[in-house]
Design a protein around this nucleic acid. Sequence first.
DNA 1: CGTAGGTTTGAATTGGGTCAATACAGGTGG
DNA 2: CCACCTGTATTGACCCAATTCAAACCTACG
Lengths: 251, 251
Amino acid sequence: MIAANTIALVRTPPIANECPNFGFLAWCKSANLTLSESKKVRDFTTHGRTIEPGSYLYNAGAPFISLYAINSGFLKTTLADKDGREQVTGFCMAGEIAGLDAIGSGTHECDTIALEASSVCGMRYADFQRLMLAIPALQLHLVRMMGSEISRDQGLMLLLGMMSAGERVAVFLLNLSVRYAARGFSETRFRLPMSRAEIGSYLGLKLETVSRTLSHFQEIDAIAINGKSIYLKSIPTIRRMIAVYGSPKGH
Amino acid sequence: MIAANTIALVRTPPIANECPNFGFLAWCKSANLTLSESKKVRDFTTHGRTIEPGSYLYNAGAPFISLYAINSGFLKTTLADKDGREQVTGFCMAGEIAGLDAIGSGTHECDTIALEASSVCGMRYADFQRLMLAIPALQLHLVRMMGSEISRDQGLMLLLGMMSAGERVAVFLLNLSVRYAARGFSETRFRLPMSRAEIGSYLGLKLETVSRTLSHFQEIDAIAINGKSIYLKSIPTIRRMIAVYGSPKGH
DNA sequence: CGTAGGTTTGAATTGGGTCAATACAGGTGG
DNA sequence: CCACCTGTATTGACCCAATTCAAACCTACG
């Protein structure tokens, strides 16, 4: 232990370098941990695991070992019912945490799959629990994270329960825009790393409907889209699609 | 303090009597708390608040003060988007906990409204947090509860995203059946305390569709229904409706 | 350069929504 | 005790948004 610490003093690069851009340390900051607490977290963190596009970060049914902070890349989470039908339940980008779905049951309920080459930091949940006992702020932060996951899911339920295709796609684009902006990327020009079918699955629509809706948005000059590259030409117009442009199910 | 304890020894009825049937103490048991830990929880619990049908346990936007354990009765939670459209996001029955939606943000996101006369026990979250620091098992239990809330929501997302009307209603009936059974009630004969419109809102359907689907289930002799009373004549038949009886959106 | 997977677009179909009329249940008051 | 009234539930006829089926079109990649 002492030897390890001593060595660490010599060869540990600045903290930021071990979790480039995003990762658990950025996350510690948002949890308001002190520097020494952050160091404790770092000691239990594995760095820089990379995942090829199309391969799994973890499988549904796998025992819950670790939480993952996404450093870079883009992943999807999918949930299957017992009849084999599956639905995309979320997309994960740099700066976000994956694996929360398993905390309740101890088993992953989702598959989490890279859409493009991604890099993650991992932390064993057993270690995390031990740290939580020592660092109350960490505990609160976990609860808050799970709370926002619940809010997110409930927003999606609202979307799936009562929005028209146009509204769903608009919500989806605006949500991505906000998340890219929060990470310092352009809020108007970005890539859609997922396929039309995956967007459709997430929104409860068929891929053809997604494609048609995007074409329609392009016709009315709200966006320009070319394959996976999109440019939001008028965010206000897109925003106006929600709850104004036809909501056949709304009251 | 000492005086209070002394008095308590004399006049405190058996724990169960303060939380009849369900409530926080039943819940402590499922959290594997020791008796003395349970007593601590009880000391912070308010008992027997009753809510008239149609009135609110709490409003969306209200600051998060307490968690509630449902003793008896039946409530719904509804979520509204900014355009005023609202959707039922869940039903709560005796033995379940309400208020978890607020833990993330500190503000209730849902309205929670009694469908029939209900009685609840309350516990201030501030006290709960303090107890969590003292009782690690409580902490784990909260996290597990939030985890199951996430699972529940994701199941509903699956339902809303890819199931036909028949499947949705079948899932709904089977889910209620299981929950009633878990509480010692009949799994085949029970009441639907909510209106058709509320069922529809929860399932992403219109009330007419719910009514038609129930009538159809009755025609094929899977159920007998009369207003709010239902009898599941053949649970296997209902189970077979899921993913077999037409799934227009399924693959 | 050819093949495979993803995307766009068109035409036909349909599940569930909308509108509307009727039936029923639970209270209320005469 | 019954006639009335109000809100909920059922049922029918029609309609439309989104799905399904199908064909053509890209784009990437070996």
